[in-house]
Design a protein around this nucleic acid. Structure first.
Lengths: 125, 125
DNA sequence: AGGCTGTCTTGATGTTCTTCGAATCAGAGA
DNA sequence: TCTCTGATTCGAAGAACATCAAGACAGCCT
């Protein structure tokens, strides 16, 4: 990723940028919109939203793909594709341990999205 | 299966349902996912996210389409289409006054989405 | 009434997305 | 090593989406 990317990435936002005031307070610049829209888009599918929910609410903080797949009437490849979308949106992390792959949520990003929607995360300018 | 509406709508959620705990706390049912996903999807486009931001941050609480359109390098019909998407997702309301049409944000829904993402919005109900 | 301006709808086109089956890759165990 | 299971990638088909030009509609002004 050695790029002069003119577009911000979610990673950039995580790095330093405190990620923008709520949209109720001031208009977000187009770069920020371009950086965050993919995360919202990833949540914009019922299957992925439910996957995200299962991952984020896992009691141990992580959940096995083998527990996710049977919860839907969809093929394995399809679930895998949706998980990849969530991964590429920066919403989850995956780790392989032996035979199985475990997914974990990334709460920082979800909190960024939430605060962008204007819930007074109190510590924001 | 008569009219036991299998699918929840955003309006339903607004009506009575307190709209679900954060996804970090418990897995959301598939009906809730189906009801909320369209709202996230609507925010999943950079143009719409910026439109939403301009509408939600308008000083008077509302903003004219004639102020939105010139802010983008897109045709009038395209902006109109995106606004319709936001309207159908329940995120904004439109009102015509004379020649111009004004858009206004619906903060309740944004707060629902935000709290779903797990920001402990203290007052949930 | 007639024309003008602002907004929305319609129709068309190229792109992106969802989904599946088949093939492939990664580890565990015999 | 060979095979079996779990997960991902590949390739393809159909649906949904973003965008525009052209046309239709709504309300002002002369």
């Amino acid at each position: 990723m050695s790029k002069q990317s003119p577009a911000l990435s979610l990673t950039d936002l995580n790095a330093g940028v405190p990620c923008c005031a709520p949209i109720t307070e001031q208009r977000i610049p187009s770069e920020t919109a371009a950086a965050l829209a993919p995360a919202f888009k990833a949540l914009g599918d019922p299957v992925r939203l439910q996957l995200m929910s299962m991952i984020a609410s896992a009691p141990t903080g992580e959940i096995c793909v083998c527990d996710l797949t049977p919860a839907f009437d969809l093929s394995g490849p399809t679930i895998s594709h949706h998980l990849k979308t969530l991964r590429e949106a920066g919403l989850v992390d995956a780790e392989r341990r032996g035979t199985w792959v475990y997914y974990r949520a990334r709460p920082v990003i979800m909190r960024q999205l939430a605060s962008l929607l204007g819930v007074g995360s109190p510590a924001n300018t």
